[in-house]
Design a protein around this nucleic acid. Structure first.
Length: 720
DNA sequence: TTGTTCCAGCTTTTT
DNA sequence: GCTGGAACAA
């Protein structure tokens, strides 16, 4: 393999980046400028020209997809196997480190990874234990707090009590959460990163080993790194000048989940010998689209500075359509797509991009009514589905009885007569003695604390888990999964569920067995880990692709966030209205507004040939009619790049339906305002009535307990 | 255990 | 205005 094959296909700036001598490097790669190409070729350069073994190379990405693609492209370019090279996501690599050094990281060897959903359930449970009112202490907020602290590398024990009541409570929740995770051997996503950082920071030998091993470290999407991820990279590379990062400050759109655009700026002081290379030649979009994007993003302050250009010509101007309302907007878009397809365009080259998921519906309806195939991105992934998570919880319990999160999840799923009361008692015992729920359950049975019925049910559940675990011990992974699916009772539960839903769930469970069959154990490079545990980790870390690729030619619908990194010949950027995009919550804060602008920049730069911007003069939002102003981002694009279009000369306004006042309730055996008495609720006054005969119901305002609806035939009311 | 009513909440998302 | 979850009645 010649050097030329690595260098020839590159432009000057790309070449400089790829062939630079070993030193810290910041590649500012604009949209569509060949950033992955540069990363791939840089790594190939190290291997081919510097003679570095793949074994000594580390490459970090954010998504599994990016990691897989990069490995594939390196293997293809060099025609070698890159198996020994560490390429993966921050979380995946952190996981691998923690498996290898579980003990030094303070973890048990069988620790399990939990996803955001598991984490939230755990926190909900914990708030109940602490007798905190969910209304006053929203679990989501606590989750956000905990993860934000971890992202900054802060443990509960490090947090000072500022005397602030809210803060103090959050710290207490954080601490309690750490204890639960510790006891159950559970590690959440943020914890993976934090632990991996602490592992390197606190263990000189481990750090030295990996510093030596990774002669060259590469990072994709550097603008999306958070504090702890960057700290981890610095431990591995600082002072050694072997960190190669690629990113684009103009495409930083994840500030709200902890990404620090500042990492790009700080890189320059942390690595004084660094070199900056700008990739500004764009190979994706036509000239006017790029100029519009440049003008828009120029409104942001404190950029690194970058201007995209192309030698591919000006292309068509951007089209702007002002719709009467959101229906009309959808009509316009679908009509344009129809024309595109009529002219021989492929549907999969068309994307409808919106700010928030709720906007997809109107487009779906119009697409459906015209029989246009489409695909919506987002939504639940395979391993996030309820039935799958339930089955996995059984598997987890088989692997680790002390996994409280899984115990909670399936102890009464399918229902086996273990009610709230029984479980509360077991939880109380577990909490009091600092033992797992499984142990507490066993103890309760042994001490005869449970009613005969509950004890039986619990024994049955525990026996089921044990039996499954024993029966399957030496079997193949897929047989373990199959045993769970067949004997847990989940299938029976979902078969009973009415509609297609239950059927789909049963199919998914069958698909899970299949996924286990196909699971490549070696591929995930397990360290000291059984195949089952590896599969469970895989399920958490890689929730599965959005949906299986359907081969049909589909219009693509997605949020602007999910569109990052993709490109389409024809792009519709819809709902460009103040309050929607930029979102209402971002309009006050200049920093957040800049992030919205970057998001718009990302959207514009997805388009290769044709870009349509649309906004509506009136829009139904949260049930109310609103009359939003066109987005400020439209005004920030110079008019010379924009062409306004009108689809129809006149639009008829929908007639506002007159609201029929509901006719007053027809009386049965009670009168409005009648005073009545109920055995349990005491005295009250009848306020409303509906239904007749056996179905007759009355609403009563009881003096003691407030409003209630009661069936007249059951309630045994006494007229006073 | 199940069906209903009530109520809050309502950007963006990967791991 | 819709949805998902919790609370409640039966």
């Amino acid at each position: 393999m010649e050097i030329s094959s690595i260098i020839n296909s590159l432009n000057d700036a790309q070449r400089v980046a790829v062939s630079a001598p070993g030193q810290a490097m910041l590649v500012l790669a604009g949209a569509g400028s060949g950033k992955t190409r540069v990363l791939v070729h840089r790594i190939a350069w190290h291997i081919q020209v510097d003679g570095v073994s793949p074994h000594n190379i580390l490459a970090v990405t954010f998504t599994n997809k990016a990691a897989t693609e990069m490995r594939g492209r390196i293997e293809e370019l060099l025609n070698i196997s890159a198996r020994s090279m560490w390429i993966g996501t921050f979380h995946g690599l952190a996981h691998r480190l923690l498996r290898r050094h579980a003990k030094q990281a303070g973890l048990t060897e069988s620790f399990q990874v939990i996803d955001a959903d598991d984490q939230l359930r755990l926190i909900k449970r914990l708030l109940k234990n602490l007798s905190l009112d969910e209304a006053k202490w929203p679990p989501k907020q606590a989750q956000w707090f905990i993860n934000a602290q971890k992202d900054e590398g802060v443990r509960a024990k490090h947090m000072l009590d500022s005397g602030d009541f809210y803060q103090r409570q959050m710290i207490a929740i954080y601490r309690a959460y750490e204890e639960v995770c510790e006891r159950s051997s559970l590690v959440d996503f943020a914890e993976l990163l934090l632990r991996a950082h602490e592992l390197l920071r606190d263990n000189e030998d481990v750090l030295a080993f990996y510093q030596q091993r990774f002669r060259f470290v590469h990072v994709d999407e550097f603008q999306d790194t958070n504090t702890i991820q960057y700290a981890w990279l610095r431990l591995l590379t600082e002072g050694r000048d072997n960190l190669f990062v690629v990113g684009d400050d103009d495409q930083s759109i994840y500030g709200w989940r902890g990404a620090k655009i500042e990492n790009i700026y700080n890189f320059q002081s942390h690595y004084p010998n660094h070199k900056v290379v700008r990739l500004e030649q764009n190979y994706r979009s036509s000239g006017q689209i790029l100029k519009a994007a440049n003008s828009l993003i120029a409104n942001n302050d404190g950029r690194m500075g970058k201007e995209l250009w192309t030698d591919a010509g000006d292309g068509e101007p951007i089209s702007l359509y002002t719709a009467f309302n959101e229906q009309d907007e959808a009509y316009f878009v679908v009509e344009k797509i129809r024309q595109w397809v009529n002219d021989g365009g492929r549907r999969s080259d068309v994307a409808i991009l919106y700010r928030s998921n709720a906007q997809s519906r109107q487009f779906e309806e119009k697409l459906m009514s015209t029989g246009t195939p489409y695909r919506v991105y987002g939504g639940l992934r395979f391993f996030e589905r309820m039935e799958i998570k339930n089955a996995l919880a059984y598997l987890r319990l088989m692997s680790n009885r002390h996994d409280d999160a899984s115990f909670e999840r399936v102890v009464n799923t399918p229902a086996r007569g273990l009610g709230a009361k029984t479980l509360d008692d077991i939880r109380a015992l577990a909490r009091g003695q600092g033992i797992s729920l499984w142990q507490a359950a066993a103890e309760s049975i042994a001490q005869g604390k449970l009613s005969a019925r509950a004890a039986n049910a619990m024994k049955g559940f525990m026996a089921l888990i044990k039996q499954l675990a024993d029966e399957v011990e030496d079997k193949e992974l897929f047989e373990k999964v199959k045993a769970v699916v067949e004997h847990s009772g989940l299938i029976g539960l979902y078969k009973k569920e009415k509609g297609d839903k239950g059927e789909a769930r049963v199919e998914n469970l069958e698909e899970l067995v299949n996924a286990a069959r196909l699971f490549d154990y070696d591929d995930d490079n397990g360290e000291n880990l059984g195949e089952l545990d590896m599969f469970l980790a895989h399920a958490a870390l890689e929730a599965g692709d959005m949906q299986g690729d359907d081969y049909e030619d589909c219009v693509q619908l997605m949020t602007l966030h999910s569109a990052k990194g993709l490109e389409f010949k024809q792009v519709f950027l819809v709902g460009l209205e103040d309050g929607l995009f930029p979102s209402l919550q971002s309009t006050e804060d200049p920093a957040r507004l800049e992030e919205e602008r970057r998001l718009c920049y990302v959207g514009i730069t997805r388009a290769m040939e044709q870009l349509y911007l649309t906004h509506a003069e009136s829009r139904r939002l949260y049930g109310k009619e609103s009359y939003p102003r066109p987005s400020r981002f439209i005004r920030e694009i110079p008019p010379e790049f924009i062409q306004e279009i009108r689809l129809r000369a006149n639009v008829s306004r929908p007639v506002t339906a007159t609201v029929q006042p509901r006719s007053s309730m027809l009386g049965g055996s009670y009168k409005l305002g009648q005073r009545v008495s109920h055995a349990k609720f005491g005295e009250g006054v009848v306020l409303q009535m509906e239904g007749e005969g056996a179905q007759e119901r009355v609403q009563i305002n009881f003096h003691e307990v407030g409003l209630k609806w009661l069936m007249v035939s059951y309630a045994k009311l006494e007229a006073l």
